[in-house]
Structure formats: structure tokens, C-alpha cells
């Protein structure tokens, strides 16, 4: 399982990556904003799961989600939004953009693991 972790904060990227490693996921690619994430999706290939922040320069996580969903190759990629934005209207916007799940920062490793497993289980059930 190859993860793409997108966040403009190097601290947050490391925190998420370390949490993923502690769950046993070692194949991780990172990007500092939505634009770089799209480039990585094209160049790295075989990304299975995207974990993205919302507020980022150049291209936000919401814009990235919309770009992925409208991309012929990546439209079905699971996307987990991890953000400080915790207003109801934000979550509705994320739902409209079709993120698979949503976590408000600060989060615990358990909630991250739980969300990833839930998304993967849903995808597996649909396959």
C-alpha cells in the first residue's frame, strides 16, 4: 500500500508519516501542496491512498480533491482530509468534493488508523 501525504507543514508530514510507519505502512511519498501532489501522482505512480491537509499554498487540499476526482486515472483514489478546519460548512464542502473521510487536527494515532482501515474496508467491500 503506497501512501501520498500532502501537507505544507514539514512537522505535520513527519507526524503523519511516523504514525503510518507505526501502523506498518512503510511505502510513503510526500508533497508540500496540491500541485506537487498532482505531479507526484503522475511521476511516482501506483499511489493507493492520499492523506491531505486543506490549507496549503498554490493548491489547497479541497482543490486537490476536486482535481483527483475529475482525473480519469485517479478519480477513485481514496482521500482522507486531515485539517484544522472543523466547521460544519467546511465538512460539507469536503463531502461535496467527495473526500472519503475527514479528521480534525489535532488528532490521535488511533483515529488516523481507524479512518484508514474504515476507508480500506469500504473499498474492499465494494470491490
Amino acid at each position: 500500500m503506497r501512501f501520498l501525504v500532502v501537507d505544507d507543514s514539514p512537522t505535520m508530514r513527519r507526524i503523519v508519516i511516523n504514525a503510518l510507519r507505526s501502523f506498518g505502512y512503510d511505502d510513503i511519498v510526500e508533497a508540500a501542496d496540491g500541485q506537487e501532489a498532482l505531479q507526484k501522482l503522475e511521476s511516482e505512480g501506483n499511489i493507493d491512498f492520499v492523506i491531505t491537509d486543506w490549507n496549503m499554498p498554490n493548491m489547497t487540499g479541497l482543490e486537490l480533491t476536486k482535481a483527483i476526482r475529475s482525473h480519469p486515472k485517479f478519480s477513485n483514489l481514496p482521500i482522507l482530509m486531515v485539517t484544522t478546519r472543523g466547521l460544519k460548512e467546511d465538512i460539507l464542502q469536503a463531502l461535496q468534493a467527495r473526500v472519503n473521510n475527514y479528521i480534525v487536527k489535532p488528532f490521535t494515532p488511533n483515529i488516523l488508523k481507524e479512518k484508514i482501515e474504515k476507508i480500506l474496508a469500504k473499498l474492499q467491500a465494494q470491490a
Binding site: S9, T11, M12, I15, S22, T84, K105, F107, P109
Partner: peptide, 19 residues
């Protein structure tokens, strides 16, 4: 290891305060 992970998670506060 678990304590270290816990401290790491607490460091999310840096991102939030930076914002």
C-alpha cells in the same frame, strides 16, 4: 515507543500555533 509516538502527536500544536 508509544510515549515517543504520543509526544510526536502532541507536536501537532506547532503546526496549529504556526497557523
Amino acid at each position: 515507543s508509544n510515549d515517543a509516538t504520543q509526544i510526536m502527536m502532541t507536536l501537532q500544536v506547532q503546526d496549529i500555533t504556526a497557523q
